[in-house]
Design a protein around this nucleic acid. Structure first.
Lengths: 206, 206
DNA sequence: GCGTCACATGTACCGTAGTACATGTTCTAG
DNA sequence: CTAGAACATGTACTACGGTACATGTGACGC
């Protein structure tokens, strides 16, 4: 039931259409909280039925933008302050790691290398945004400050995973032909060529 | 479709009943990959229908233990080496953090303190197990070595989250009446009173 | 001998996530 | 002026996870 509150929260920043919200979800939360447009449109209708949001304006191409109502604002605040936090972290690579003992050392090594690279790239992408934000590239609204905090979590989480994968490769399937890397050496500073995340607000084109 | 492979992987360690598997999922993966017994029993039947597992023995109280077949072993190996890795990390606290700007500073501070405490405790619990393992408390099977790797990820992930929450509290809602903590100071070494995780193999009582 | 706990397995239902498919509209580049 | 991209919204179906409910069995203490 988080999609519901995710939408409510995004709408609290300003009116947006289902299409806008789908894109924002994808850009900002793509790796962290995927949501498909069919679900978004359906949920928006339900939220509107319950009076938590209402149509703000209708634009070209059947575009329909919504805004939160007072009831909606109350609800998202209630969820944030008194709602149960779901602490499960569903990370498939962790599940897989339980079964590493079933893999051929070569396959495992290759697998962990790829994982490390992927996580390091993700971390670098998030860090690039964090740094842009800290330079002031995106202004300094309260929403931006919150997003900065979210992005920081992304950076830390992906860095942790990248370093874990590297550590795991050295621990579980040490290669004779390469030096065992230590955590310090694998700092994910990454000169990785990263396509920058676009966290800018979706412009409202009414 | 990870439950399927999770069960296959656990059964690769040795025969077990649905009940055993439910308990192991809960103990080992409770916070990371929850799975309820109804789903487990259903999936076991499906796996048996497809010939990936078969009944090993039937015990008292309708107990039915399964073991993997060769086909099942092949399948789990295939999944591990060539199956697509799902890299989404679904962490509700991250979603929530996007909306921190909607919270009262006091509520937010309280919230982040609680989160930090929770994550630190989780990290400490996993670390306690990791240390026990490193002392040799649980023997040294290949499975145990894999589990050690999984647990290491848990430790790192929860530590990262704990430090993030503490950092966020200091960044987003700094309290006038308390010093701003730095990352270094909040090392999650935690003298937290933790109930140790029980990672021992579920004994087979036929 | 009886109550209670842990063992052990299941059915039924609901809500949500994901995928495939379908459709109409405006803008822009050639 | 037309092809294609991007905008914009939806339906239908499938897979999956979670909760509630239901039932039977063996062990153990009192």
């Amino acid at each position: 039931m988080s999609l519901r509150h995710g939408l409510l929260g995004l709408l609290a920043e300003g009116p947006a259409s289902g299409y806008d919200l789908a894109r924002r979800f994808q850009e900002v939360l793509g790796q962290v909280w995927p949501a498909q447009h069919p679900k978004i449109y359906a949920e928006l209708r339900r939220l509107a039925d319950e009076g938590l949001i209402e149509v703000d304006n209708e634009g070209p191409r059947r575009r329909k933008a919504y805004r939160v109502t007072d009831a909606g604002l109350t609800e998202i605040r209630r969820w944030l302050t008194t709602g149960e936090v779901d602490h499960t972290i569903r990370v498939q690579p962790l599940l897989r790691s339980l079964f590493f003992w079933l893999m051929e050392p070569d396959d495992l090594r290759r697998h962990l290398d790829e994982e490390a690279r992927f996580f390091a790239e993700s971390a670098a992408r998030y860090r690039a945004f964090a740094e842009a934000k800290d330079r002031g590239d995106y202004g300094d609204s309260p929403q931006m400050r919150s997003m900065r905090v979210t992005v920081e979590a992304g950076v830390r989480l992906y860095e942790a995973l990248a370093q874990w994968a590297t550590w795991a490769a050295a621990t579980v399937a040490p290669a004779a032909d390469r030096p065992i890397a230590t955590d310090a050496e694998v700092e994910t500073d990454a000169e990785v060529e990263t396509e920058a995340l676009d966290f800018r607000r979706v412009p409202h084109r009414p």
